[in-house]
Amino acid sequence: MADISTQVPAPPPTWVEHLAKTGLVAKGVVYCLVGALAFMAAFELGSTSTQEAGKIGIFQFILEQPFGKWLLGLVALGLLCYTLWRFIQAFYDTKSKGSDTKGTAMRLRYIFSGLVYGALAYLAARLALGSGSQTGSGDSRETIARELLQQPFGQWLVGILGAGTILAGLYQIYYGYSDKYKKNVRGPGLKEDLEEKMIRAGKVGYMARGIVWLIIGYMFLQAALHANAQEAGGSSSAFSFLESAAYGSYLLGAVALGLICYGVFMFMRAKYKPLYT
């Protein structure tokens, strides 16, 4: 009989685990702040607008606090750690996903996640060092849409990106709702009540995140249909979209609380969840 230990992924080196935990904490900080500012914008607390609730907006918010440059620098470093961890997962296959179609797709998802958070780390670092625009130089997704529309078959490219974002949003909602997600949360050594708290926080968080991605994807499709890059947008634009709907304040408030739950889930995952499962 084959040794069962050969079927279980080996724990990562200590430095990789520290890298992952630092990255997850930084990601949790970002999502908690995004959710908190979006909630404040929903109910007009503290003169906060939805434009200030996007990731660029929260970097500016951190920068304006006492010792803001140092705090933002720490966030940038944490996001860089998250980026490196995602690349390690992808290229060294630390979760034993394999090289078949499903495994390759999962490893490509890790690479994409690493690229996204690497870009955020770069932006946060530039702002912390004082070399970035105070306004964030506009919406990055609008810039992407504009660049794509200038290419051959540009409307198709933007449309494909929008459709892909919608599919990613649907997957986030499914991942949060499904039993598969619950199995991935559970791990050895966790108390049952702690598992349930993680499950609830993660479920609400993933679904809220998926809703935001669905709206972002919809806006990309509108930009493609009308060949107008200004119709594309990121999370701040998605928050504005929600706020403008019927009962918009309550919808935005609910999604904002979900994003805070996602941030809390990142904190809990960093502290309790085995990172090699």
Rank of each mutant, 00 (worst) to 15 (best):
A2F: 11
Q7Y: 05
Q7L: 09
Q7E: 06
P9T: 01
A10C: 00
A10T: 04
T14F: 00
H18G: 02
A20P: 00
A20Y: 02
A20L: 02
G23K: 01
V25L: 00
K27I: 13
K27C: 13
L33P: 04
V34G: 02
A36C: 08
L37S: 01
F39E: 03
M40A: 07
A41N: 02
A42T: 04
F43Y: 07
S47F: 01
T50G: 03
G54T: 07
I56T: 15
F61P: 03
I62D: 01
E64C: 02
P66G: 06
P66V: 03
G68D: 09
G68R: 10
K69C: 11
W70M: 14
L74T: 15
G78P: 15
G78Y: 15
L80E: 12
C81N: 13
Y82K: 15
T83L: 05
L84F: 03
I88D: 06
Q89L: 14
A90Y: 02
F91P: 05
F91D: 04
Y92F: 08
K95I: 07
G98N: 06
G98S: 04
D100L: 04
T101K: 10
T101L: 12
A105N: 12
R107I: 13
L108K: 12
G114S: 13
G114R: 05
L115Q: 13
G118P: 12
A119R: 11
A121Y: 14
L123P: 12
A125D: 07
A125L: 15
G130S: 13
G132M: 11
G138D: 10
D139G: 14
S140V: 09
I144G: 07
I144C: 11
R146S: 14
E147G: 07
L148A: 11
P152D: 04
G154Q: 12
L157I: 14
V158P: 07
G159Y: 07
G159D: 07
G159F: 07
I160C: 08
L161W: 06
T165F: 00
I166K: 05
G169W: 02
Y171S: 05
Y175M: 06
Y175N: 11
Y177F: 13
D179A: 08
K180D: 10
Y181N: 06
N184Y: 11
R186C: 00
G189H: 00
K191R: 11
E195P: 00
K197R: 05
R200V: 06
K203Y: 03
V204C: 04
V204W: 12
M207K: 09
G210A: 02
V212S: 00
L214D: 00
I216F: 04
I216K: 03
G217M: 04
L221M: 14
A223V: 08
L225G: 05
H226S: 14
A227C: 11
A227Q: 15
Q230F: 09
E231V: 03
A232F: 10
A232P: 06
A232N: 10
A232D: 09
G233I: 08
S240N: 15
S240I: 09
F241P: 09
L242A: 03
A246I: 00
A246N: 00
V255K: 02
G258Y: 05
G258Q: 06
I260H: 14
I260C: 15
C261R: 05
C261P: 08
F265D: 08
M266A: 14
M268T: 08
L275Q: 06
Y276Q: 10
T277N: 01
